[in-house]
Every structure is written in structure tokens, then in C-alpha cells.
Amino acid sequence: MATVELTFSALPAHVRTARLVATAIARRTGVEESLLDEVRLAVGEACSRAVEAHRAHCPGEPIRIELSDDSGRFEVTVSDQAPSDEHEHDRPLDLSMLSDSYTSGFGIAVIAGLADDVEVFPSPKGMRIRMSWPASANGRAG
């Protein structure tokens, strides 16, 4: 299993970098071209959510991403250190309740709609979002 780890400070500008790194590694791992847009968006959503949560709770702490190829799957885990609401991702869509500056539950809804396999682990010490997509056996990582 090859793993790449990336940590970045909670700045919106770094989310794009994280998206680009994830997409590049997904391609190298053998994720189909047709899925790369989904990887890019889902990883971006997870990182955006983490950045917003850190800016609200712990702006000095870094956000961590682990990217790995594991048994024919490309797996991404985004971990933050901000206390999370267990029911955050269960909020129903309600236009009147949506803020135009922060739509955290929205982001997780998008991830759930995009990633082939998603697990969200909220806790008082931070949230961990693990997502994975199928990768071909002849991916170039190793």
C-alpha cells in the first residue's frame, strides 16, 4: 500500500491545492478518468468543510489528508480537529435555512452523492471523512 499524507493550514486557498494533489494521485493510482471529477469535487468538499470548521474552532491547527491505494481502491481520508455535530450530515435541505457563506451539511450531502463509498466519523475531537473509489489493478502507484 502506497500512502501520501498532506497537512495544510486552514486557509481556503489551500483547498484547491489539496484537490489537485488528490486528483493527480487518483489518476496515478488507476482511477478511471470518468471518476476523476467526482474525486476532485468530493475531496474539495471534505477539505472545504474542514477549513470552515477549523476557522470557527481552531484556526491554528492543521488539516490532514491521507491518500492511499489499498486492495484495488483509491482511498482518501480527510481529518480535522474541530468538534463536530454528530447529526450535521443528516440535516434536511431547507432553502430558508441555508446560509450563503457556510453550508456544511450541504457539502457532506454532495460527498455522499459523489463518492463510491463514504464513511463519516464525527467526534468531539474532530471529524474524519473516509471516501474511496475503485482503482484499476494496473495503477502506476507502488
Binding site: 469535487l41 474539495g44 468538499e45 472545504s48 432553502l95 441555508l98 446560509s99 450563503d100 457563506s101 457556510y102 453550508t103 450541504f106 457539502g107 450531502a109 454532495v110
Partner: peptide, 10 residues
Amino acid sequence: DSTGLGVLVG
């Protein structure tokens, strides 16, 4: 991304 969606909704 959803931040952009949020801006459009706003």
C-alpha cells in the same frame, strides 16, 4: 462546490 452553491442560493 457547495460553497458556490451556497452563494447562488444566497
